[in-house]
């Protein structure tokens, strides 16, 4: 399938480019990461406790179903994170160990 989300208005914004799992994805300034990813793809990540792909649920920062990761292992909530040009996103948690703080 193409994108899960369809754009209904506000389509003359400047574009930005991000990389999702190594693939280029075009988005628009003002998009959340979630809208950027679901306007060209069907899902955000794999479920940890089931076979299915996930695409978020609440869009208001309450369910945490929309977590994706930056290249260095940082966790982002896709529904409330604005897209940034050149962002590198991974849909699965990279094998990075968290630095011990302190």
């Amino acid at each position: 399938m193409n994108g899960r989300f369809t754009r209904l208005a506000e389509t003359d914004r400047p574009t930005v480019n991000i990389i999702v799992d190594g693939q280029p994805v075009q988005a628009m300034v003002g998009d959340t990461l979630m809208v950027a990813m679901l306007s060209s793809g069907a899902s955000l990540r794999s479920a940890e406790f089931g076979p299915e792909k996930r695409a978020g649920f609440c869009l208001m920062g309450a369910c945490q179903d929309c977590w994706v990761w930056t290249a260095d292992g940082g966790r982002l909530r896709a529904c409330s994170t604005p897209v940034e040009n050149g962002q590198q996103i991974s849909t699965s948690q990279p094998e990075v160990t968290w630095p011990n703080h302190g």
């Binding site: 989300f5 754009r7 506000e10 996930r54 649920f57």
Partner: peptide, 25 residues
């Protein structure tokens, strides 16, 4: 309801209001 494409009702409104997208076709 765990499948991708199922959203809360509020989510569908947030998508439209703050991002000008529909959650599906």
């Amino acid at each position: 309801w765990q499948y991708a494409g199922v959203f809360s009702l509020g989510a569908s409104q947030v998508a439209l209001k703050s991002q000008a997208v529909s959650i599906g076709r």
